[in-house]
Simulated assay, not measured.
Amino acid sequence: MTELDWLEILLRLGSATLAGGAIGLNRDLQGKPIGLKTLGIVGLSTAAVVLLAVEFAEPGRINDAASRVIQGILTGIGFLGAGVIVHESKGFRVSGLTSAACTFLAACLGIICGAGQWKIVAAALALAFVLLTVGRRVESWLHRILGGKDESHETASEQGPERSA
């Protein structure tokens, strides 16, 4: 059994909360239905459960019990993400997929923080922010170059009354 000290526990839980909260802040600033508190709690809760599982594992190893905990977390997070998508669905137009993916990412980062793998957390968070910051612009640019349908240039009449406001 591994015995983590208070500082290590606070570091793992705090970083998971901050990572999830940072992703949530991005979603909140974009006016999306999921924000800092929700994704911060997702990161914190997943890290806490993984910490519990890691406490009972051999030092430096993920055992079968920890693996099952991680699998259960990821299955449960799917339901939370689906709720974001269903809540935001209007007619035949599905929205909320990026927020659902961010929920999944916050959970994964929580798992990784709980396992204490800081390089993976830093790299994943950096890449996520690059994608969330410039992704839409790159997507629009590629649509223009490759001739795809660019949804950001639809007219208000094509979008319907709920999207034109």
Results as ranks from 00 to 15, higher is better:
62 I>C: 04
83 G>Q: 09
72 G>P: 10
80 L>W: 07
41 I>Y: 00
90 K>A: 14
93 R>D: 14
109 L>A: 05
97 L>E: 10
130 V>T: 12
41 I>H: 03
128 A>Q: 01
38 T>D: 04
125 L>Y: 08
40 G>P: 00
133 T>A: 05
97 L>D: 02
118 W>G: 01
98 T>N: 14
71 Q>C: 02
65 A>T: 13
35 G>T: 12
112 I>N: 02
63 N>D: 15
108 C>K: 00
139 E>A: 13
57 A>W: 05
121 V>T: 08
93 R>C: 03
41 I>G: 02
43 G>I: 12
66 A>N: 04
74 L>G: 07
46 T>I: 02
135 G>P: 03
114 G>D: 06
39 L>E: 15
94 V>W: 07
139 E>N: 06
80 L>K: 07
121 V>G: 05
92 F>H: 11
113 C>Q: 07
120 I>Y: 03
143 H>Q: 13
60 G>C: 07
132 L>Y: 04
76 G>L: 10
88 E>R: 13
105 L>W: 07
119 K>D: 15
36 L>Q: 11
52 L>K: 03
77 I>Y: 05
140 S>T: 14
143 H>M: 12
116 G>L: 10
144 R>N: 10
141 W>S: 11
64 D>N: 10
93 R>S: 15
138 V>T: 12
147 G>E: 09
55 E>Q: 14
117 Q>C: 02
93 R>G: 00
60 G>Q: 11
60 G>F: 12
120 I>R: 01
